[in-house]
Amino acid sequence: MKKRSLTEITIPSKILINLIFIIVSLICIVPFILVISVSITDESIIMREGYRLIPSVVNLSAYEYLFTDINQIVRSYMISIIVTASGTLLSLILTAMYAYPLYRKDFPFRKFFAFFIFFTMLFNGGLVPFYIMYTQVLNLRNNLFALIMPFLLNPFFVIIMRTYFTQNIPDSVIESAILDGAGELRILTKIILPLAMPVFATIGLFVTIIYWNDWFMSLLFISKNENISIQYYMYKTMLNIQFMLNNPQAAAMAGSIKIPSETIRMAMAVVGIGPIVIAYPFFQRYFVKGLTVGAIKG
C-alpha cells in the first residue's frame, strides 16, 4: 500500500467528491439510456404512456427499418470516419502552425495575426458568399473535401492552444533550442508537440466531435447519397419533420410523405452518435502522457 502523499485529499472528501460525481454522471447518462430505451420500445406504448426508462414491450422494428439499407449505412459510416480522421489530422497541423508563432513572445507580428484570426470568429459574410466560394470558385460540389475544408481552422482552438503553450512551456526551452541551432519547424515538432500533448489531445477531441457531428456541409454540398455522412443520413429525417411542421402548406402538398415514428427518430439519434462515444477514451490516454512528459521537462 502506497502512503498517502502530501498533496492528496482525505478519504472522506474523496468519498464526497465521488458521490457528487456519481450523481452528476447519472444526470448525464440517464437521458442517453432513455434515448436508447425509447428506440427499442413499441411505438404504440410510447403514444400511450410516454417515455419509460425500461421498455415494457421491447420492439426492435425501428432498427430493422433503419438497417434495411445496410449498405448505405456502412458507406455513410465510412464517409464519416474518413472525413473525421483526415479532417482532425489536418486541422491539428494547421492549428499548431498558427498557434506556435502567436505563442512566440519575440515574434513582432503576433498581435496582428492574433487579431487576424480572432476577427474571423466574429465576422462572416453569411452563407451565400461561402456557398459561391465552395461551389463556383473551388468547385467542391460533391467532393469530400467540401466536408473537411470548412472546419480546418477554428480561431477558438488556435487561441486555446496558444494560451496553453504560453502557460506550460517556458520561454527558456525555446531559447535554448534556438541557441542549439534548431529550426522553427523542428522546435514545433520535436519540442512543442511532446510538451503540449494534453492540449493537442483536447483540441483533437473537439475537432473530431465537430467533424463527426456535422451534417450541414453534407446538406449543402453533397447531392449524391453515396457520399453523405452518417450524421446527415440520420439527421435529414429529423429535418424533414422540422420542415413539414414549419410548412403546413408543403406538408399538405407532400401528403404521402410519412413522418417516421418517435422510436425511429430516437434510433436514428443512436445510430448517428455511433462510434464517436469511443473517441473520448482514445484521446484521454494523451492527457496522462502529457502530464508525465511535462513533469520531467518542466
Partner: peptide, 27 residues
C-alpha cells in the same frame, strides 16, 4: 431531399447556380 430543400433552393437562387428548370411554390 426535403431536409435540405429550403437552404439549397435559396442558395441556388442567391448564388446564381446554373439550373434550367427549377421547382417552385409559395412554400
Amino acid at each position: 431531399d426535403w431536409a435540405g430543400w429550403q437552404d439549397r433552393n435559396n442558395l441556388i437562387i442567391a448564388s446564381g447556380e446554373e439550373v434550367d428548370v427549377l421547382f417552385t411554390a409559395p412554400w
